[in-house]
Design a protein around this nucleic acid. Structure first.
Length: 305
DNA sequence: ATCCAGGAACTGT
DNA sequence: ACAGTTCATGGA
């Protein structure tokens, strides 16, 4: 059903190890998600490109990810930024052949690597969004984390209405840096979370913290050091962000409760594994710890459904 | 009601 | 460096 004039569209060619279906399954994990919508096998996502809001419809046809623009189409440079976003969002740079090779010889990963074949880490290309989402998720259940995110986005983000639907983009760090703790308390953020998030926004406004600067570091150890030096960012958050935003396939949020639960399920353990035990399992995942973690997280949703 | 959640800072040793 | 404590609140 074409309910708008399809003008031009963008095509992005993913590597062979790619399943749009698996990626959509991951993106569908919460009904409270406000930063994209899934409808009829297409993803609708609003992006801010060169200061204007661009609604994208993303689908998969004939081995290509195709993006078109229901509302209005960006200029040429805008289109290449959209393509760049898609490339990052689906983590298309990673060469999963290596991961699958490794997984085929690993008792824990063997089954899930096959079950979710083609699933890629669904990234959060925007550093501020990745950091805020990680802080929101700290020590609360995911359902409530989504509630907080929804309130945050709908209070401070920008939106576009199209065909009766409202689409949102994540708030900018400039906007959040101008807030007081009480502005976030109203949304039921704890004082701690509010302080962390405003502090992170201020660091980004000052220019001390940026994705570009982080990616210029010598190695991911350096990246981690500078992330952890920021208040509110501990080991877990730093690893989460390196995995979801900075494309570090070897980051391992080893303290993650979801990871522990997934391992417990797959191994049929009575209790959650200890950190030491996880280190032993992970010794076999070298270079692909983030993918191992992501696939293990994915295995948790099947239980829930 | 009770336990825990995709932790981190703080405090004392 | 390391372990224990506090924070803080909705979900299941």
């Amino acid at each position: 059903m074409e309910w708008y004039d399809k003008k031009t569209y963008i095509e992005v060619y993913p590597p062979k190890e790619f399943s749009f279906y698996e990626c959509i399954a991951f993106l569908s994990r919460s009904s409270q998600e406000v930063l994209h919508q899934i409808k009829d096998g297409s993803i609708y996502k609003l992006l801010k490109i060169e200061d204007s809001l661009v609604l994208c419809r993303i689908r998969y046809e004939e081995n290509a990810i195709k993006v078109d623009f229901p509302d209005r189409q960006p200029e040429k440079e805008g289109c290449s930024l959209v393509a760049k976003f898609i490339w990052e969002w689906f983590d298309l740079e990673a060469d999963l052949k290596e991961f699958y090779q490794l997984a085929s010889n690993d008792g824990i990963l063997k089954g899930i690597a096959k079950s979710y074949s083609g699933l890629r880490i669904m990234c959060i290309p925007d550093l501020f969004e990745a950091l805020v989402w990680a802080v929101l998720g700290q020590q609360i259940n995911l359902t409530f984390a989504y509630t907080l995110k929804k309130r945050f986005v709908e209070r401070f983000g920008e939106s576009l209405m199209f065909a009766g639907e409202t689409y949102w983009v994540f708030p900018t760090y400039e906007k959040i840096a101008s807030l007081q703790v009480d502005d976030l308390r109203e949304l039921q953020f704890t004082v701690r979370k509010a302080e962390y998030i405003i502090g992170i926004a201020e660091e980004m406004v000052s220019g001390n913290l940026s994705k570009e600067k982080l990616l210029q570091k010598r190695d991911f150890n350096e990246v981690k050091k500078s992330l952890v030096s920021i208040r509110g960012i501990g080991d877990w958050t730093a690893n989460y962000v390196m995995m979801k935003c900075l494309h570090d396939t070897s980051s391992l949020p080893i303290a993650d409760v979801g990871l522990h639960n997934a391992l417990k399920n797959i191994l049929g353990l009575e209790r959650k594994p200890s950190i030491e035990e996880i280190k032993e399992y992970a010794a076999n995942w070298s270079g692909w710890e983030a993918y191992a973690t992501f696939y293990l997280w994915r295995s948790l949703y099947d239980e829930a459904i």
